[in-house]
Write a protein that binds this DNA or RNA. Sequence first.
DNA 1: GTAAGTGCAAATGATTTGCAGATGT
DNA 2: ACATCTGCAAATCATTTGCACTTAC
Lengths: 155, 155
Amino acid sequence: MTVTSEAVNRDILEHVTSLLHARGERMTVPRRSVLLALSARTGHVSAEQVVSDVATLAPAVHRSSVYRTLDALTAAGLLQHVHLGHGATAYHLVEHAHPHAQCTSCHTIVDLPTDLLDALTTCAQEQFGFVLDPLHVALSGTCRSCAHNQQKPGH
Amino acid sequence: MTVTSEAVNRDILEHVTSLLHARGERMTVPRRSVLLALSARTGHVSAEQVVSDVATLAPAVHRSSVYRTLDALTAAGLLQHVHLGHGATAYHLVEHAHPHAQCTSCHTIVDLPTDLLDALTTCAQEQFGFVLDPLHVALSGTCRSCAHNQQKPGH
DNA sequence: GTAAGTGCAAATGATTTGCAGATGT
DNA sequence: ACATCTGCAAATCATTTGCACTTAC
C-alpha cells in the first residue's frame, strides 16, 4: 500500500512537472511539498492545513509560498478551491472534484454527487444565461445529524 | 415619494423597535442608522458599505457597532447575509430574501427567483438528509454578459 | 439604576505583496 | 545566465474582542 501510493505520488509529480514546464514554470521544493500534502489527504484541505502539513515535510517552506503554490496549481488547472461560508477556502486536487455542502451548525463538509446540481445548472443557464460552476462555492444548510439534534442552527 | 419612503422607514423602525424590546434589547442610534442605511439600498450591501453609509448619517457611529448591529439584527431574524465567494459578506433585509449567484468574472450579484433551488433542496433533503439553506451562500459562475464576452473566466 | 450597547484601540485570521536573494532549467 | 521562485517582513482586508464608559428603558 505504501509502495503503491509512493508510485502514485511519483506519477503525479512527473505529470505535474511536465504540465508546469509546458507553461514555462518550475517544479520546486515548495510545490513538491504542497502536492505531497494534498495527495496525502483525500478530501478538502484549507490553506492553513496545507501549511502545517508542509511544515513537517519541509520546514523551510514559508506560508506565503504555500499560498502562491496553491494559486499556481489552480492556474495550471490541477487544483480547485471551494469557498466555504464559514471559515477559510478549501482546496482539493481536481480528480476529487464534486460539489460540496457545509453544515452551518457543525461546519462539517458533505460531499455531493457530481450530478446533483445538473438540473439546476441547466435551468440557470436556460432561464438566466448564468453559467453555474457548482464546484466553486459550497452549498449551505444543516446536515442530517444536526438537523436531528436541534431546531436552532448556529451561525 | 420621499414622504412615502420616510413613512415606510418610520413603520420599519417602530416594528423593529418592538421586536428588539420583545427580546430585551434596545433601539439605539447605531441600530437606527444601520436600518436606515439598509432600507435606503434596495439590494445586497456589504458591511463596509453600511459602515460608510452610516458614516454620513451618524458620523459618531463606530465601525464595530455596525458589525455588532448587523449581528443583532440577524439574530433577531430581520436581516440575512449571503457569503460571497469573492469578497465580503453581503447583508439584506429579510423582505428581499432570495437566492443569489455571483459572477466570478465581474463579481456582479444576480438575483434568482425564490423557487429556483426548490427541486435541489428537496433532493438534498431526501437523498442526504441535508437541509439546504439556499439563501446563505451565493452560487457561483459566469453571468450572461461575461459568458458572451470571454472563454476564460477569472478568479 | 442597571443591563444592554457603544467607542476605541488592539487583536485576529486569512491572505497578499514588495523586495532582495536563492534556485531550477 | 536569467527568469522564475522563494523567504521574510510588513501590509491588507474583513471582522472580532476586551474594556471602561454611555445610554435606553
